[in-house]
Amino acid sequence: MDLQTLWFAAVAVLWIGFLLLEGFDFGVAALLPVLGRHTSDRHLMLRSIGPLWDGNEVWLITAVGAVFAAFPGWYATWLPALYLPFVLVLFGLIIRAVAFEWRHSHHTPAWDSSWTWVITTGSLIAALGIGAALGATTLGLPIDAAGNRVGGAFSGLGWPALLGAVAVLTFSLVHGAMFLALKTDGSLRGAARAFARRWAPVAALPLLGWAAVVHLRYGTPVTAALWLLAALAVLVAWARIVVGREGQAFAAWGAMLIAAAATIFGAAYPVVVPSTVDAAFDVTVADASVSDYTLTVMTWAAGFGLPVVLAYQAWTYWVFRKRLTAEPVHEEPVEAPA
C-alpha cells in the first residue's frame, strides 16, 4: 500500500473514530429533552458524557487536521465549498462546548435549563452539519476544474448533504441511547433501552442508504461485503438490545457504523471530492496529496503518537467505566419542556 492510500485510510479511521465517540455524546445531548424529563435524569445524562465529550471532540480536530496535513487539496476544496454550513457547525460546537462547562458555574434552575437547551441545540446543529459535510464530500459538490464552488453559497447543500445529515443524526440518537442504557442505571436505563429498541432498525436506514448509494456508484465486491456486514450488525444490535444485552448491542451498533463508513470511504477511494459538475473535475487522492516526504514524517509521528493516545483514552474510559446512578437529591419537575 502506498503512502497516499495509507493516509486516506488513516483519515477514514479518524472520521470513524470521531463518529463512534462523539456520536454517543451528540446522541445523549440530543436526547436530553426526550429522556431527561426529570432534573435528576438530565444530570445523570450529562454526567455520563461530562468527562468524555472534550476528548471525543479532539477526534474531529485530528480528522480535519489530518485532511489538511495529508490532502491539502481536499481541505482547500471541501471547506470553502461549504463555507456557511461549516461556520454553522462551528457555531454549534462553540455553544455546546461552553454550555458543558458554564452550566455548572452558576446555580439557578433557569440557568441550568437554558444551558441544557444550548447543549441539545448545539449538538443537533453540529451532528447535522458534520453529516451534511461528509455526505457532500463522498457524494458530490458543485466544483469546477480549479476546485472552486460554482453556484451560490448554498449550492453544496443538495440531497447528498441532506442524506449525510440525517444519517449521522439518527445514528447518533440510537448510539446515545445505547450508551445511556450501558452507562446508567434506574429508570433512565430502561427508558434508553426502550428508545433504542424502538428506533434502532429505522435509525440505521439513512446510513445504510448512504453507504448503498456510494457503493452502487463506485463500489467493489469488498464494499458490497462491508455493506452486508453493516446490515447484519444492525440486526445483531437490535436483537441484543431486545434481550437486554446492552454491551453487545452497543458494540454491534458501533460495528455497524464502522462497516458502513468503511463501505463509504472504501467505495469512494480514490476520489475525495466528487464534482457534480463534471466527473473530470473530481478531486482525487493523487491530486490532493502532499509530498511523500511529508507523508513519511507524519507516518512516523502517527505511528508512535496514535497508539499512546489510544492507550490513555482507553484508560480514562476504564476509570469512568462504572454505571452511574441518579443522585438521591431533590427531584424537581422540569419547569418548561426544552
Binding site: 480536530i61 489538511f68 495529508a70 482547500a76 502532499v290
Partner: peptide, 18 residues
C-alpha cells in the same frame, strides 16, 4: 499544504488529546 497542515495535525494528535 506540504508544511503547515502537518504541524496542525501533530498539534491535535500530540497535544490536544493529551
Amino acid at each position: 499544504g506540504d508544511v503547515f497542515g502537518s504541524l496542525l495535525a501533530l498539534e491535535a494528535l500530540l497535544a490536544f488529546f493529551l
